[in-house]
Design a protein around this nucleic acid. Sequence first.
DNA 1: CGGCAAATTGACACATCTCAAAGCCTGTGG
DNA 2: CCACAGGCTTTGAGATGTGTCAATTTGCCG
Lengths: 243, 243
Amino acid sequence: MELDATSLLIHTLLRRDRLTDAEGGLIRAMKSRSKRFHRRQELVEMGSEPSTCCLIAEGLVARTVALSGGTRQICSIHVPGDFVDLHGLLLRVMDHSVVALSAGRAIFVPHEEVRKITRVSAHLTRMLWMLTAIDAAIQRAWIASLGRRSTVGHLAHLLCEIYLRLEAVKLAADSKFVLPLTQAELADVLGVSPVHANRSVQQLRGTGLITWARGTLHIRDFAALSALAEFDPVYLNLVQRAR
Amino acid sequence: MELDATSLLIHTLLRRDRLTDAEGGLIRAMKSRSKRFHRRQELVEMGSEPSTCCLIAEGLVARTVALSGGTRQICSIHVPGDFVDLHGLLLRVMDHSVVALSAGRAIFVPHEEVRKITRVSAHLTRMLWMLTAIDAAIQRAWIASLGRRSTVGHLAHLLCEIYLRLEAVKLAADSKFVLPLTQAELADVLGVSPVHANRSVQQLRGTGLITWARGTLHIRDFAALSALAEFDPVYLNLVQRAR
DNA sequence: CGGCAAATTGACACATCTCAAAGCCTGTGG
DNA sequence: CCACAGGCTTTGAGATGTGTCAATTTGCCG
């Protein structure tokens, strides 16, 4: 049986606040079209004006910005349950692309369906707004990493973050998770060359804090990795409270 | 006469969409407390749980993240009309501080006032949500700059952005604006050392594209500076359309 | 058993950091 | 109106981090 993307979204929201049955119903009632995607497929094109929002059901995707000279920067990574381009509802023209890091599946919800929710439920609207706010908080953490952490520290921070985000949707446990990332893609996250990304991975392996083989990442000592990264999970807002 | 912060906010919103008189009235009706601040004053503390949102009326402020070893990263800069910690309404605990880059004035709007708006006007709620979405778009641009632009390119991009944002609230004209930034603060934006920030400023001056003296920045050739920075203003969403 | 994409390595060039000193503004008090 | 203090800016020199290029090795899949 396929995981239902709207259930994942509800689960993601429930990690942050309570929802009434009616609110859950509104979310499940959203019309959408489900699509599978393959690795490296571009789901949303930079500069386009999509009329739907893309909610991940399976797989990992990234937002990417293309610069001249063929370089690109990955400016966020998204896990199942994430409403990747929810902001498209408000901003209209995409300032980045959405690209799949692995094969997977997403549902595309027409903007009008989301706008309908904003007319009916103030609380649910705030919850969706909250999702974009959390997204922005994660981006701030990435800015801090890019600007002020060593590449190894940045990498460690990234792994702590991805672990907790996957764990929140039950895709990580026992300090292990599937990380379908190429080192070249990792380089586009860290803002360094592929060669340097590779050397940083090796350096982090050298500490014994992680293991990464055959697409599976294993955090051997989360506490120590957090400390190395100066990781503080507050910004992920994985706490249930009134919003 | 002092500029009214809510008028600035309305002006900021009007740059992106139309507002009815009733909607404008709702914004003006928000209760708030006005406060002056001095340069370097901390307006909001990282880790705190503010009960108000801070709307800038005059001056520049920054969001900063403190790392160990006394380093810090500025993860955004805000101009008059910006609702700096609007996301505090939804996220509750601050993942960063808000610090003044110059003397100025802000109004502090109780969360309940904003929440009230979310209960009354779906469109206005989307407009406030849009502000946080634009904020996030700017952060993505910063991520791309930090990750993939040269320091000089990053600086050029930053100046193009700040110019357009200030111009949008009539604080820049004739390619000139007041930039009350220390080179050490600039370094905290660019994610480099103060020495390197200084050398990058000199390098950009050397191109003849800018002049920067006595706190005033003058862009001599915006088109050329944009080209150097690969600057595309789309992400600022300075276009009026239905949202 | 290939064949290819991805990971790894080495060598050298360039970017950026650190530390420390010197120079330059600007506001203030005499 | 000048002299001075303090904060910024600028400079130099040597250490470290990171990029580039090109070759080699490894791992996965048919």
